[in-house]
Design a protein around this nucleic acid. Structure first.
Lengths: 177, 177
DNA sequence: GGGGCTAATCAGAATGATTCTTATTAACCA
DNA sequence: TGGTTAATAAGAATCATTCTGATTAGCCCC
């Protein structure tokens, strides 16, 4: 299943991207990343670069374990703990978003163009969803009267088109993911 | 801190409330609950009734452990496992919503009138947010082309008004909750 | 109104994801 | 280029949550 680009015009959710490193195409160079780290007083390590690249490259909202397996191929001595620590760091820097999967465990997504998520309750797949600018604007107005807003995220749950077809009434089929 | 009723007109999010037991005021009688359980072939137990009441009564989005402590006062022999099992059952029946707290662990909220959540990144507090109809309409449009939608939930993160005042730059203050 | 079937509970063990600890390594500033 | 110290690796520890197996109690039927 591919990203569900609901509207041709992609959105710009300012809240999440104030000083984003990403281009409108969702790219972020290694130099930019290194610079951001240094600005924050952090060190740019091989591990951090690889983990970040893996998250940006991946379209499938992987969990920490999956990222670990992938990076391990390039860097066999890396530890799972480093993956977790780095993902937390990247999240704090606003470069990565952590999603809680209904079946447990966190999934990670790069903060490319601001977007939202659909999660299939049957197969567990997570799909990106985009709003147009007008729509994001209306959501943005949610911030009135609340303190300062850092991010707005919409999570839709249901059955993806594949699962809503193939699954009639049964209780617990398909355990992909 | 009280519920942040952002707009005077409360919303009607059909997706989450198809056959809700709740009145528009967010109430649900013990008889209705018992009937729903029986319809689904489940048994109405003391434990389930108490746990449900505790979630409905509570405005603070408690975690399982907190619900356990509360119910234990009335029913000292109850086990934490029963609380977890019951919360999952209530969630499956659409009576309770599970929220993932950024600091780990799940929080629970009754499915009263459809609403969304603001989470303070500083103190961890979760506050209810209501959208007006236009805003809910926007959310509805997110579902075009996706399979069948079961729920739409907006999660806003930021600093609540209290924390945005009292917290200047420091890294990790306030550990309420 | 009581008996039997079986779902639901309790207690504690087990699991799985994530975080901590400690010694070691490697960024990067001077 | 060396010293400082943040970041890492490995494995132990923790935390929330789920499972196991024996026991209890809803509730359907008589």
């Amino acid at each position: 299943m591919e990203a569900n680009n609901i509207d041709s015009a992609q959105s710009h959710l300012q809240y999440q991207r104030e000083d984003s490193l990403f281009t409108p195409m969702g790219e972020c160079s290694a130099e930019d990343l290194a610079r951001l780290f240094r600005e924050k007083g952090l060190r740019m390590t091989q591990q951090r670069a690889e983990i970040f690249q893996e998250v940006v490259r991946s379209r499938s909202h992987p969990g920490a374990e999956k990222i670990f397996e992938k990076v391990k191929r390039i860097m066999p001595s890396i530890s799972l703990d480093t993956v977790y620590r780095t993902l937390t760091t990247l999240e704090e820097l606003g470069l990565v978003r952590r999603l809680n999967h209904p079946r447990g465990g966190a999934r990670f997504d790069s903060m490319g163009p601001g977007h939202h998520h659909f999660i299939c309750l049957e197969c567990g797949e997570i799909v990106d969803c985009f709003l147009n600018e007008a729509e994001e604007g209306i959501l943005g107005s949610l911030s009135r009267d609340i303190g300062s807003v850092k991010s707005i995220h919409v999570e839709i749950r249901g059955l993806c088109s594949q699962c809503s077809h193939k699954v009639p009434i049964t209780a617990h089929n398909g355990q992909n993911h």
